[in-house]
Design a protein around this nucleic acid. Structure first.
Length: 514
RNA sequence: GGCCCCUUCGACUAGCGGUUAGGUCACCACCCUUUCAAGGUGGCGGCACGAGUUCGAAUCUCGUAGGGGUCACCA
């Protein structure tokens, strides 16, 4: 389903510069949902000639993880979604870490306190639990009953002055409803009875998300808040804050959620949703971005492969579908394979692949060798990691033969011996020469191609599943090709002392056992 | 459970009153072939249900069902 008719206008009343922001909290692995939101933030901001800000929401000290911030920054860099302002590069709205902006929130919290739109609450953790329990029992909603609102100003001031711990809560209306003008869903109305007196300022003097986002978004001039649908239920708190401060609301855009195969919100715990993990698996940034873009959005002309640039040209929030898409690794791999094979040039793929080869402990004599290896493997792999998994025999001579390969070697021993002679006679060892030689041999022996090629393939790679034999031989080069044939022959001679193998083999294809 | 959002093939989606409901992934088959792939061709498979509105509904309205989100001094 697409956006409702008569939805909210996307444009602010004036010609304000569009400002979007991604505000991750540094609590762990950079999440794919962050990349998802960043993509739309970035694309929309760039399209509108606006700015995209990265702000770190580190207001939860308990869950704070110091490495996490840098990993988010790095992940955005990897993706190519460079913020115009961030804690790393700074900007006119610095600082970009909320714990460095504490006085600001304090100021606004006090303002709310003075105007009576907020109040101090002194309940302890245990008391709160009790309240919640009671409310649940009586069926009168949950959360907090607002009892501290009834404290007199004098008492509140006195208890605060005496050093008693307190939080500051927003005094929300109990009657009526709050309207969220969501650009994708139209008008969403939530009864105020459902809107809790949210904590704005925690007892440690650090604001909650609710106060911090609103203040920062306003102060930083954020015009469009693009965030996950999970925020819709608490959006009234934010709308109410804008209203009591008398600030103009941003355009609210609650995006559909990314789901796992069970249809549940993608979670760090259950699901593999870490950007670093995708990177390590050899997913390429362009492919991930393209894939993410198709989750809930589509090109007007139906193209499924497109660049960030093209997306910026064509993007409209109107084409967002609200269903919430299942993150499908298979499909991501398909996109990745396409980028590896069709979009990125070989040199670029090689650059991206190098860290993987290095991590695998492989070394190569020159760039061309690496390029040839990648080129011939490309149709067979979908990720950079698979490139190394399938190329061991290109970087080491001491590979083992699989059981299937052993059988092929045994069946083709005489061909190997002949081929060793034939190939050693070649002056040039380029594709045509090798290919011609092999084909001529097959013809002269009047056997099936496979009878000759499979044993050779097994000798060259230790496996029966590999690229074309002529390609393999040419890439490996004459001397290594001959060495490997020789190695296979000595293996056969050493490994088969008896005339006949013990167990009668049932081998369908290469059944030509002597 | 309350509140809110959502609902087209298994998955991602096109469709915005008149289409044989289109494409992609996955899956299956065939072709190509020297194995594995890649590539090519074809196939399987869908408008959650029920009422309306209308000459005509996947498209508009309502209801039902189902799914999801959220109910913290976490974001």
């Amino acid at each position: 389903m697409s956006v409702k008719q008569g939805g909210v206008s996307m444009s602010q009343e004036s010609l304000k510069t569009v400002v979007t922001r991604i505000a991750p909290s540094p609590t762990g692995d950079p999440h794919v949902g962050t990349a998802y939101m960043s993509l739309f933030d970035y694309v929309f901001a760039k399209q509108q000639g606006g700015k995209f800000i990265l702000r770190i929401e580190d207001t939860d000290q308990k869950r704070y993880n110091p490495e996490s911030e840098q990993r988010v920054i790095d992940a955005l860099k990897w993706l190519g979604l460079a913020p115009d302002e961030s804690p790393e590069i700074g900007g006119p709205n610095a600082p970009y870490r909320q714990t460095e902006r504490l006085e600001l929130y304090q100021k606004y919290a006090n303002q709310l306190l003075e105007s009576g739109h907020a109040y101090r609450a002194f309940e302890t953790q245990e008391e709160l639990e009790q309240i919640r329990e009671d409310m649940q029992k009586s069926g009168l909603g949950q959360g907090y009953d607002g009892r501290a609102k009834r404290l007199s100003k004098e008492e509140s001031d006195k208890r605060a002055a005496s050093g008693e711990a307190f939080v500051i809560r927003l005094a929300t209306p109990t009657e009526g409803e709050t309207l969220i003008k969501d650009a994708l869903r139209g008008e969403v109305r939530i009864p105020n009875s459902e809107v809790p007196d949210a904590v704005l300022m925690k007892s440690d003097g650090i604001p909650t998300y609710h106060l911090a986002v609103v203040v920062d978004d306003h102060v930083m001039g954020v015009t469009h808040v693009v965030r996950g649908e999970e925020w819709l239920p608490t959006a009234p708190v934010h709308v109410l804050l804008y209203q009591t401060f008398g600030w103009q609301e941003p355009v609210w855009i609650h995006m559909p959620l990314l789901k796992n195969a069970d249809g549940k919100k993608l979670s760090k715990r259950r699901d593999d949703s870490s950007l670093d993990s995708y990177k390590e698996q050899g997913i390429v940034a362009e492919a991930l971005l393209n894939y993410l873009a198709t989750m809930g959005w589509s090109m007007p002309d139906g193209r499924e492969f497109f660049s960030l640039k093209d997306m910026i040209k064509q993007f409209k929030f109107e084409r967002i579908s609200l269903g919430g898409s299942v993150f499908d690794m298979k499909r991501l791999r398909h996109y990745n394979a396409h980028y590896l094979r069709e979009v990125l040039d070989l040199e670029t793929v090689a650059e991206r692949a190098k860290p993987f080869f290095e991590a695998a402990g492989y070394s190569w004599k020159d760039e061309d060798y690496l390029l040839d290896v990648i080129d011939v493997l490309l149709p067979r792999i979908e990720t950079l990691a698979e490139l190394t998994e399938q190329s061991a025999y290109f970087f080491s001579d001491s590979f083992n033969y699989t059981e299937e390969a052993k059988r092929k070697l045994e069946a083709g021993q005489k061909h190997l011996e002949a081929l060793e002679r034939e190939l050693s006679r070649l002056d040039f060892f380029d594709f045509d020469d090798v290919d011609d030689a092999l084909r001529e041999y097959v013809k002269s022996e009047s056997v099936k191609m496979g009878e000759v090629m499979m044993p050779l393939r097994a000798a060259l790679t230790g496996s029966t599943q590999a690229p074309g034999v002529s390609d393999l031989a040419v890439i490996l080069g004459k001397s290594r090709t001959l060495e490997r044939i020789g190695r296979a022959i000595s293996y056969l001679e050493a490994g088969l002392p008896d005339d006949k193998p013990q167990k009668p083999k049932k081998d369908d294809e290469a059944g030509a056992t002597p």
